[in-house]
Design a protein around this nucleic acid. Structure first.
Lengths: 364, 364
DNA sequence: TTGAAAGCGCTAACAA
DNA sequence: TTGTTAGCGCTTTCAA
């Protein structure tokens, strides 16, 4: 059964297609009786207007997009996506309890903010993701179907055709800063966050020797690493360089270094991690090696994701206003009404330190 | 600066628009040299194909939709969505820690499954929500822009034009069962879940007197309520009817009844709650009244959301395979390739009881 | 208040 | 292998 169109409705209602369109889009511009005829005909014919056609005609889609780069690859579930059929087996992973080490993470909280704001504004949300690093044309696909697009940075972001996109559609980078492109950047005050962490470790816990762990693959991570180096120097702190990893590598070299440091007893008094997920991993490795946190070593994270609060011990971290960031992205995009920015915009949002117990504090 | 189109690219590359289209959609059908010309021209012109135009021409959009009904209204944040500007203030709620009583909930875990499967299949996800119960034409809007649509049931779902939609686009109802419409229904084995809960309370904790609390506004809730009534009768258990609320009301009448029962000391030995969120609320009210769980009364939930596991005490509940349900929805929709079902389909998924401590068990 | 008609940008026969 | 061309369904001037 063919889908019915304006033409079908128009014929059935005995009016023109223009009137059908008006009956839906500008109800007040149409005589009540006419409108009723149209609506009735539409109901009988199961008329569902084509958003594609409308988008084409209007030059807008009414949707805002959020693009995440190879999220799947970074999450354990990604690999289990095949077994959709054997749910009856008792040991199916679908029955395991929710695991907050996998969800919700940083991107999820931002996504949630984005969705809230879009719904608030009556925009629909389009979610896209590349399955493989090579598929960077998928971002162009989604860019072509929205009035504005928010993008998460990631390793591989450099390959994305962001320079072209931002000339065609309003583009927001989240957790990233770019002053060369005519797009908006929303990021948090990484420097202030790292400083407050370091100061806390020094001033409250009298640490004289610390290091930094993390993959320096994005703007955020780089900012934190730089802030660490700088502030630690400024405070005259010794740095256990054995651990420092300022490589751009995607592999987790720091794990090797950390294990070596454990084996050779070269651990610093404290480790500042690039983010909560890294901190979680570091803590697991240390714990497995019989090293206690915070008795034997202090750990800090960054981001303030849910898992940081519920890990044992809870992680002392810096919380980004993630929901807010997502909402701001949607707001900025919506306000552009489809018109790309003509100069770089940036929004640096404040952060707040959250004291857990991994730094040696007692939080009741 | 006008967005460039196939025509612009075609002219610049010195080919026809068809060739431009082919160069992108069927790269192998175009001579290498020609394709290169096209791609170069496209890059120079910042060409971003219009998904609307493609959707129109192809009759498909490549997106799958997920529609939630008035989610915002049910969540505390919904009301705070205005203050997007004053983030510098120290007490901004954006800095509060993630609150799992608000997110992620039942729908979020399903949504996540839906997203995972869509990404896996290379489909984009369209998220839509009605801001107000009256805005039920928004679902038609999103139905018009996807190749398949999943819908959450809710109070108010009855007002939705589901009968018309399911004749135009493949439709999946999640957490709902409908044998009258030509759509698919994905729901869990509510009856088995309730039975295992009741049996546990009776057989392990020797409960002889229990009741049920919840708003009976959706298929799931109704199923659980019915299963409760039936199984409790079958096991010859006394029911504290003072608490039973089988009304269809949206207001939370059960709160009143619960408070009365507390005041008059009419509480049963155990309360089976319609879902985890209700259980959380019930526990809060009881705790505030100085009643201890599980010492003074046993509580069970349903769903297995994250907050149930981390509440104190952890809630004994029944876990639905939520991620799986979302994934199944996406899979079914994708497989229809835009063609509506011509008869009702239903998928009842198994559940599993998860022992917490709210039932009186000790889980270390 | 309604109708006629010209696009919107892309795709896919069909031809060449 | 590439070009021509007829739509896809809706919106929106402009006229009536």
């Amino acid at each position: 059964m063919r889908k019915s169109t304006v033409y079908d409705v128009a014929k059935k209602a005995g009016v023109s297609t223009a009137t059908v369109s008006f009956a839906f889009r500008h109800p007040d511009k149409v005589k009540d009786k006419t409108r009723k005829k149209v609506l009735d005909a539409a109901a009988i014919l199961d008329y569902v207007p084509s958003a594609s056609a409308r988008g084409l005609a209007r030059g807008k889609t009414g949707a805002l997009g959020l693009y995440s780069f190879d999220m799947l690859l970074e999450r354990p579930q990604g690999s289990e996506l095949e077994d959709l059929n054997a749910l009856n087996e008792q040991n199916d992973s679908s029955f395991t309890r929710p695991n907050m080490f996998v969800y919700p993470l940083y991107v999820d909280e931002i996504q949630r903010g984005f969705e809230l704001e879009c719904w608030h504004r009556g925009k629909t949300v389009l979610l896209g993701t590349a399955n493989s690093p090579k598929e960077n044309n998928s971002i162009t696909d989604i860019a072509g179907s929205v009035d504005g697009l928010a993008v998460f940075p990631n390793r591989g972001t450099d390959d994305l055709p962001l320079p072209q996109l931002c000339r065609t559609v309003p583009l927001v980078r989240i957790g990233d800063l770019d002053n060369t492109l005519s797009c908006a950047s929303i990021y948090c005050d990484n420097t202030a966050g790292i400083i407050s962490l370091i100061d806390h470790l020094i001033d409250i816990h009298h640490i004289t020797d610390m290091s930094f762990i993390g993959e320096i693959t994005t703007f955020d991570m780089r900012s934190r690493f730089n802030a660490f180096q700088q502030h630690v120097t400024q405070r005259g702190i010794q740095v256990t360089t054995a651990l420092l990893d300022n490589s751009e590598a995607t592999s987790q070299e720091w794990m090797v270094k950390l294990c070596e440091a454990i084996d050779t007893n070269q651990l610093p008094q404290a480790i500042v991690c690039a983010n909560d997920q890294t901190a979680l991993n570091v803590m697991e490795i240390l714990t497995d090696a019989g090293i206690r946190i915070p008795e034997d070593i202090l750990i800090t994270g960054f981001d303030g994701i849910m898992a940081a609060e519920f890990s044992r011990p809870p992680i002392t971290t810096v919380r980004q206003p993630m929901e807010h960031m997502g909402r701001l992205a949607a707001k900025l995009l919506d306000e552009r009404a489809g018109i790309p920015w003509d100069s770089p915009q940036s929004y640096k949002l404040p952060v707040r330190m959250i004291i857990g117990e991994s730094c040696g504090c007692k939080t009741q």
